[in-house]
Design a binder for these strands. Sequence first.
RNA 1: GGCCCGUUCGUCUAGUCGGUUAGGACGCCAGGUUUUCAUCCUGGAAAUCAGGGGUUCGAGUCCCCUACGGGCUACCA
Length: 508
Amino acid sequence: MIENRKVRVRFAPSPTGPLHIGGVRTALYNYLFAKRNNGTFILRIEDTDQNRFVPGAQEYIIEALKWAGINYDEGPDIGGPFSPYLQSERKELYKQFADKLIAEGKAYYAFDTPEELDSLRDRLKAAGATSQQYDSSTRGLMKNSLTLSDEEVKNRLNAGEQFVIRIKIPENEEIVVNDLIRGRVEVQSSLLDDKVLFKSDGMPTYHLANIVDDHLMEISHVIRGEEWLPSAPLHVLLYRFFDWEAPQFAHLPLLLKPDGNGKLSKRDGDRLGFPVFPLQWKDPKTGEISSGYRESGYFPDSFINMIALLGWNPGTEQEILSLDELVSLFSMERVGKSGSKFDPEKAKWFNHKYLVEKPDAELAVLFKKVLEKKGIFAEEDFVLKVVNLVKERANFVEDFWAQSSFFFEAPAEYDQQVVKKRWKEGVPEMMGEIKNLLQGIPVFSAEVIKADIVKFTEEKNISLGVVMNALRLVLVGGGFGPDLALIAEMLGKEEVIRRIDAGIKNIA
RNA sequence: GGCCCGUUCGUCUAGUCGGUUAGGACGCCAGGUUUUCAUCCUGGAAAUCAGGGGUUCGAGUCCCCUACGGGCUACCA
């Protein structure tokens, strides 16, 4: 029984471009399912279409999975007991299986040219046929080993004429796909067309290759996108033809665009200003660059967490889940049936949650790189303190700069709104007094600074806010930032005095 | 056009065995905390469960129909 088989699942993308987040989610669910069931997760590259091959795409896929932490146990770059994992390198394998089907009368040679195929479709369309398929109703009209004599077929083959091999779909049979997510799906075989299994270029099509490889690689569960559901009956039929035990199927719902309807595409990201790809991608042909989650400052664990919850949930109210937690909680029964619209806002929220939980030291390393790009080289300890103070108010490490630039350079200008509100009559004079007050503090610590300012306001009978807000304006250039006494301490007495002077002089 | 899949707050979703004031989260709004912004806390608005018919004492949950949305319909995957 297949239920007792060892769980082996595969993610099988074709290298036609960068993986988008829908693909990453499919990979993730495969991974989670495998790990949850102590199984094996395999990466297999389906590069049977030589025309659509895009240089760099395979490397991109591997790097993206690596970044996301979706590690496979077998794959093209790491090998495994079922090598190779590149279908182009398995090319010689497939022909014999197609031949076997022909020998058994379950498939046939077809010699029709593309023009003849087009003409068939046009004729059927013109005649008002409900479908324009190459199937049991039309194959008798075409040039194939069903209509041509054995002699003629042999001659054409020997002459090296181009041919494809098509499956011969039986008539009036009920084909049942038992889907783990959708349940029982029934299809009438007469509705299926005689799909090409083997192309004239000597390569199998996806349909043949995926069945052969899944069987040979002992795949127990096929977890893939919903766009494959219509061809699942064909695959079920192929397993039957080969007399192989079919794997279990699970067809995942699609990821939809955030506004309107339709599946998420590359264009949506550009249009709405969020990445649809895990990593940045540069189109080798056009040079066009598409942004990636990694480059946009998303943490891989946050990214994975967010993606995991698009179509699946643990059934509890917990939303922040580590990869390990996802593994232990994952089940196919809790995968939804309907497509999910991707929400860029919630993606940011997830990243914020993860950022706040990251150790300061880890964030400091990242922020230091950001600073260095700006030509700022600060002490490690200082950066660490800054990170600790501002991380609560940021979604990304990049945000730290906007929240903390004043720690590294004096304000070049002052927020006019704040100036208007906080820099009223008498304030410059008051700042002068504050300057003298701070000047006299021997140990320039936050506690002392604050205590002295409080004492000052009490003696003068003015509100603390008036002083603090004006001082904040002078030190940071606006009305934001962490505790002011702490800022002052970290800036140091000399710098604080300098900024007060500059403020009194420059704020109009 | 044909076939297949889907449809609970704006969004992600809970609700899997028919009996809930239909719950949570993001976002939004208000209040509180704070020297400020943000965080944080509290509260609020927000789904006649796509619509209509059944079945039932009782339906978001079961059945049927309709609408809408999506996918597929290549010698692409």
